[in-house]
Design a protein around this nucleic acid. Structure first.
Lengths: 240, 240
DNA sequence: GCAAAAGTGTTCCCTGTACACCCATGC
DNA sequence: GCATGGGTGTACAGGGAACACTTTTGC
């Protein structure tokens, strides 16, 4: 957190940053590493500044924890139960790190998706963050577990509204299998290879590349890329 | 607002209560009627109490302004721009009615749908609320106009996730036309009469009744009712 | 040769959509 | 009689789903 700005101690923003690797979603957790408090992890998040917009705060938090500047970011729910700060350990940590006397805090949760490239994976080496499989979440402070659960549900919702965000999970070039695995994870079902490929072929904005995989222990797969411009042309509309 | 409870002056809840009549959506506005302040209208809403959950607060606000106890209620977005309280007139009103010194207020917006029955329409006579066509909104304080606009968008989203909520707009018995008009308003397009009817017939949970319209200046239409139990059976699932 | 994944077409069914005429009722 | 909405069926097209075998590559 930057110094010299005044915190607004009643509202925080928490970010669920999801990546996809090894056929499952991973969520970014930051480490709380304080000698007086038992080692634990939490969602990246912070109190907002007195004059900071919520979207700005979410962007700031993501940048602080990953270095990423521009990402698709979606506010998905506000969590405001008075009970969310009833665990003393959580509050103690909060007051220690922020120097703020916290009674009740409403938090606004954001969802963001990313490709787990080498740079983002390398963040783990600093030991300040880790990518945690959503099936093996540790105990999290406050209501962060609930926030993650609702975020996963929200991914599907988001894709329903805008297919193009699935490509946030993928690198610039990807194979049909890569895309299929993402869809299978999101909708929790398996897709027929041929039907899936046929569907891909019918979508102009999924552009096949000449390039193929190299050094794979099987027939090399073709790469594709997502064409944002073509996508936007197809989905621009005067209705809403 | 009840007396004796302590307000939490940093977070408020605003409710967009939508009804449907005369082929359009109406939103409930409450009247600010203070001699020192020019007469104006706003969304029903209030600061939350110190120990009150957000959902509870939304329910309380709806009950206070309409008497309605149990309604489908959906949190849909949190509005937290520091600029939303920059209009002095709005702030002056707020401080006068709540006796709270307000700097910045984050508001959590809720959406709710209702049938405009005679009791709800009669509320207008008390002059404390009015049902306002969403195409003819007056100037609203804070960012209430934006909240209404986003609420309308959210209705479609909600129906996409759960068809059954369209019946919130309709009385217990309704005609095919009634239902069609609601759909047309939500999706902003016209539906073919025969195709729509065919679709209705295919849905088990829309149950035709013996009863017909009376005293209408045309052939009497059949009534239908929505069967919640059948609907839930069809949509219960172990997946999510 | 074997393991692993790529690539490839056809058939069927279901759903959505387009489309036009007569009927009942109140005024 | 006229205005208003109610009620009805068919035909076509497009999209989703089911389904199996051969090919390429590294080891």
């Amino acid at each position: 957190m930057e110094i010299g700005k005044i915190l607004y101690p009643h509202v925080s923003v928490d970010c669920v940053l999801l990546g996809f690797s090894e056929n499952e979603f991973k969520v970014l957790l930051t480490h709380i590493d304080d000698r007086e408090i038992e080692k634990t992890r939490k969602l990246p998040g912070s109190l907002i500044y007195k004059n900071e917009d919520l979207d700005e705060a979410a962007q700031r938090i993501l940048t602080e924890s990953t270095g990423v500047k521009k990402v698709a970011l979606k506010q998905f729910k506000c969590f405001g139960s008075p009970k969310r700060t009833e665990n003393e350990k959580d509050v103690k940590w909060l007051e220690k790190t922020t120097d703020v006397k916290a009674d009740r805090i409403i938090t606004v949760a954001y969802l963001s998706l990313c490709k787990l490239n080498t740079r983002l994976l390398a963040l783990e080496k600093n030991q300040t963050v880790s990518w945690c499989s959503i099936d093996e979440l540790p105990n999290l402070p406050f209501d962060h577990e609930q926030i993650v659960v609702e975020a996963i549900r929200e991914v599907r919702n988001w894709v329903d509204q805008d297919n193009s965000i699935v490509f946030e999970f993928l690198p610039a070039k990807f194979t049909a299998l890569d895309l299929r695995r993402v869809y299978e994870a999101i909708y929790n079902k398996v897709y027929d290879v041929r039907n899936f490929k046929k569907k891909m072929k019918s979508l102009e904005y999924i552009v096949p590349l000449e390039e193929k995989q190299q050094n794979v222990a099987h027939r090399a797969a073709q790469y594709f890329r997502f064409d944002r411009v073509k996508y936007n042309k197809l989905h621009s509309s005067l209705n809403y």
